Simulated scan of single mutants.
Amino acid sequence: MKRLIQLLFIGALSVALAIGFMAPAPAEDHTENGLISMSSSYSVAETGDRLEALLAERGLTQFIRVDHASGAESVGLDLRPTEVIVFGNPQAGTPLMQCNQEAAIDLPQKALIWEDEAGQVWIGYNDPNYLLERHGLVECAEVIANIETALSNLISTAASPSE
């Protein structure tokens, strides 16, 4: 039953946010489902806090932070720590929607932060190149490249120890 609930939860997040498991490091892994993930040196809550601070520092809009584990607990179910932070910047997202308005289904950006069965924390986000392919955003290749660089820097900074 517990496994069924976990599978239902994963399905509800969407294919782009499906969980991928990688080797420890903060190394990126491009998975077939369009998710780029890396291990975090912090707890789920602290990784989320670090990401929120970076979003504010860089002038990005944070729309919501969803604590799925608390939601599960509120209905008497167990779920390892799992959060989604939804954020964006109209200067980056609008050109994608101008190329293909259907790209709006994948915007604003999302970061998934979760703890796996072994206690390792991960942070993942949609691969911008996956979105390029999914929505045929060839005319927006330069915008995609800029988003890819910005997301990679943002997520790796949130997940890695400060120097």
Rank of each mutant, 00 (worst) to 15 (best):
R80E: 08
N33L: 12
I113C: 10
I19D: 11
Q6H: 13
R65D: 03
I64A: 15
D116M: 04
Q109F: 13
F87W: 02
K2Y: 11
D29Y: 08
A104M: 09
D116A: 04
E115Q: 07
E32P: 02
T47E: 09
L77D: 02
S39R: 14
L137N: 01
L154W: 09
D67A: 10
E46N: 10
P161S: 13
E28W: 14
E102H: 13
S41A: 13
L96C: 03
H68K: 05
T149L: 13
T149C: 06
I36F: 02
L77R: 06
G48P: 02
L55S: 07
V15C: 13
D127K: 03
T47S: 07
Q101H: 07
D49G: 14
Y130R: 03
R65H: 11
G88P: 06
I113F: 02
T61Q: 14
S152I: 00
G71K: 12
Q6D: 06
F9K: 00
Y130I: 09
T149E: 12
D106M: 03
T157L: 01
G71S: 01
N100W: 00
G34Q: 03
I123E: 01
L55F: 10
F21Y: 15
G34K: 09
I10E: 15
R134S: 07
M97I: 08
L55R: 04
A159M: 03
W122P: 05
P81R: 04
